[in-house]
C-alpha cells in the first residue's frame, strides 16, 4: 500500500507536502507551460501589495555558491491587476495561497479584507519579513508587537481564509513566532530569506541592488532552515509549520518534515528547473516507501532528538 502523502493544515488539506514558495512561482499561471500546476500540494503567489511596486534596479540577483541573493524589491502589479489574472491560476492549481505585504499595518488588513472575498484562495501568507526593501516589511518582522497586531488584523479581516505568517530568519528567540501564533495565525512559514551580500569586483560595489544587499536562498541555506524548523517545533509542539529555505529535492522535503515541518515550500529550485515542483512530488512516493514512512504526520518531527 502506498504511503499517505496528505497533510492536514487545519484550514486546508493538501494532497502532498510540497508547496511552491512565494516569489518563485509567479503571480498567476506563469509556470503552466512547464509543469502541471495541480500537482504541488499548494502554490503561493508572489508577494502582492495594495498599490503596484516597480521593484529595484539591476543587479537584482547575484549567484553564490549553492545559492542566490536577490533584491527584487517586491515588484508586483498591485492587488487590482493581480486579482484579474488570478483565475488563470485558481483554475489550474489544487490549493492557492496569496502572499501579501503592506507598508503600514492597516494595509495588511485592507489586503486581507479584499482577499477574504475572493473564491479559490485557500489561505493568505502574511510577509512580515522581507529583508530587501528599505521601506518594506523588515521592521514589522523584527517587532513582535507589530507582528501580533498585523496577525490579529488579518485574522479579523479574513475569517474565511487560513492565515499563515511568514517570519524572518530564526536567529535567537522565538518571540515573533509566538506573537503570530498567539494572535490568530493558523500556521507560520519558517522562514524568509537570510540577509546577505557580496562584493562585485568588476564594479567595486556591494551587491545585489542599490543597497548592496539582499536575501539569500537556495541549498546554501537549507541546513539553517532544518535547524530553525526544529527549534520552532520544539518551542511550539502544536503549531502548523511550513518550512521554507533551500529545499531542492524530495529528500530535502522529507528531512524538513522529519525536523518538524508539516509541509515544505520549495522556491529557488524552481529557478533552476521550472518543473521542479512536479518532479519533487513525483519522487516522493518511492522515497517515502523506501524510508518506511507511513504518513506525513507520523514522520513529522521524527528526527528531533528526545
Amino acid at each position: 500500500m502506498s504511503a499517505d502523502l496528505t497533510v492536514d493544515l487545519g484550514f486546508v488539506t493538501l494532497s502532498n507536502p510540497v508547496i511552491l514558495a512565494s516569489g518563485t512561482a509567479g503571480h498567476a499561471d506563469e509556470l503552466a507551460p512547464y509543469m502541471d500546476l495541480s500537482i504541488p500540494g499548494a502554490i503561493i503567489t508572489k508577494g502582492i501589495s495594495l498599490r503596484p511596486r516597480t521593484g529595484n534596479p539591476a543587479p537584482r540577483i547575484w549567484e553564490t555558491s549553492s545559492g542566490l541573493i536577490n533584491s527584487i524589491g517586491l515588484e508586483n502589479p498591485g492587488i487590482d491587476v493581480f486579482l484579474r489574472s488570478l483565475p488563470s491560476l485558481v483554475s489550474k492549481a489544487s490549493v492557492v495561497g496569496v502572499n501579501i505585504f503592506g507598508e503600514t499595518v492597516s494595509e495588511y488588513a485592507d489586503l486581507a479584507r479584499r482577499l477574504n472575498e475572493v473564491d479559490g484562495i485557500s489561505f493568505i501568507e502574511v510577509n512580515v519579513s522581507c529583508p530587501n526593501v528599505e521601506k518594506g516589511g523588515e521592521h514589522f518582522g523584527h517587532n513582535p508587537d507589530l507582528v501580533r497586531e498585523i496577525t490579529h488584523l488579518c485574522r479579523q479581516a479574513a475569517p474565511s481564509k487560513g492565515i499563515v505568517v511568514k517570519v524572518p530568519p530564526i536567529i535567537g528567540g522565538m518571540d515573533v513566532c509566538e506573537a503570530a501564533l498567539d494572535s490568530g495565525a493558523d500556521a507560520i512559514t519558517v522562514s524568509n530569506t537570510i540577509p546577505a551580500a557580496d562584493v562585485d569586483l568588476s564594479s567595486g560595489r556591494m551587491v545585489p541592488g542599490t543597497a548592496g544587499r539582499g536575501g539569500l536562498s537556495g541549498p546554501a541555506v537549507f541546513p539553517i532552515t532544518v535547524n530553525a524548523v526544529r527549534q520552532v517545533r520544539q518551542a511550539f509542539p502544536g503549531a502548523k509549520i511550513l518550512a521554507s529555505g533551500g529545499a531542492a529535492g524530495s529528500k530535502d522535503v522529507l528531512k524538513l518534515i522529519m525536523a518538524g515541518a508539516d509541509a515544505v515550500q520549495i522556491g529557488t529550485v524552481t529557478f533552476l528547473d521550472p518543473a521542479a515542483g512536479e518532479r519533487i512530488v513525483g519522487e516522493l512516493p518511492e522515497l517515502v516507501e523506501r524510508l518506511g514512512i507511513d504518513s506525513m504526520s507520523a514522520a513529522r518531527g521524527s528526527a528531533i532528538p528526545a
Binding site: 508572489k46 534596479p57 537584482r60 540577483i61
Partner: peptide, 21 residues
C-alpha cells in the same frame, strides 16, 4: 543576468521609458 529564464524570478528586469520594469 537571469536566474530562471521563464518569467518567475523577476531578476532580469530592465527599465522601461514608462518608469516600469
Amino acid at each position: 543576468r537571469m536566474a530562471c529564464g521563464v518569467g518567475v524570478c523577476h531578476g532580469c528586469a530592465h527599465p522601461l521609458t514608462s518608469g516600469e520594469y
